[in-house]
């Protein structure tokens, strides 16, 4: 049954787990924002081989399970590069690589929605190129991309729990360990679910709200 004192006793481990989960998610998501940009540039390139390669990357990560990528990066990557990598490092690499495919889809949708006519119009009324980007194009594209990017960040946060499978000491792993030592699994798992809910729910409300506002604006 639920036993709050368990949470209080194990608070140092749980707090460390929360910090690790948040740090891993932040690092992976930032990495994905960059790698996704490179992928998008590759997909828009005129070189067919580069374009195909990047398209293939995105298609592959649409269907390969996240956990498979995590295991691959933990068991195979160190052998291939000949370095010993920590669980956390392998996990961040895997989550980055997974999220980058989605981020690239979001960037490309944003690029496809670029109002090029407005760019010319902005230049015609005498705005400098940089100003046209910063004042006219960028705000519209960012507004269009934010809901999807927030959702992608949420997915990365959820996926970070999978790192428990390779023994990275994030929140889900810590909870499992507490369950193992106290034989009370329900309390730590309920706590973890609660923590994820209070982080994710507001984020997804913001994403939904922005999405509806965007739809209303586009209509």
């Amino acid at each position: 049954m639920l036993d709050i004192s368990l949470i209080l006793d194990a608070w140092p481990e749980l707090a460390r787990g929360i910090a690790t989960t948040l740090a891993v998610t932040a690092a992976s998501f930032l990495g994905a924002l960059l790698l996704g940009l490179l992928l998008t540039i590759g997909r828009l390139s005129r070189r067919k081989s580069l374009q195909r390669g990047c398209e293939g990357y995105v298609a592959l990560f649409r269907v390969v399970p996240e956990l498979g990528v995590i295991f691959w990066s933990y068991y195979c990557l160190p052998l291939l590069v000949g370095l010993s990598l920590s669980e956390i490092t392998c996990g961040i690499i895997a989550l980055t690589v997974i999220a980058a495919a989605y981020v690239s889809e979001i960037y490309r949708a944003g690029y496809n929605a670029l109002p090029i006519g407005q760019f010319e119009a902005a230049k015609a009324i005498g705005l400098k190129e940089w100003h046209a980007w910063r004042l006219v194009l960028a705000p519209q594209i960012l507004r269009r991309m934010t809901p999807s990017l927030i959702n992608c960040g949420i997915d990365t946060l959820k996926n970070s729990t999978l790192l428990a499978a390779i023994g990275a000491t994030e929140l889900a792993y810590e909870a499992y360990q507490i369950g193992n030592t106290t034989y009370n699994y329900l309390t730590p798992f309920s706590f973890v679910a609660f923590v994820f809910f209070i982080v994710i729910f507001p984020l997804s409300l913001i994403a939904r709200r922005r999405e509806t506002r965007l739809q209303a604006r586009l209509r």
């Binding site: 946060l157 428990a164 889900a172 699994y185 973890v192 679910a193 994820f196 809910f197 994710i200």
Partner: peptide, 22 residues
């Protein structure tokens, strides 16, 4: 629906797996 959509599946599976016996 909100609880399920806003928590990770792994945690849900663990939770269910260990809550059913109780």
């Amino acid at each position: 629906v909100e609880m399920v959509r806003n928590t990770p599946l792994l945690v849900q599976l663990w939770w269910i797996h260990f809550a059913i016996p109780i």
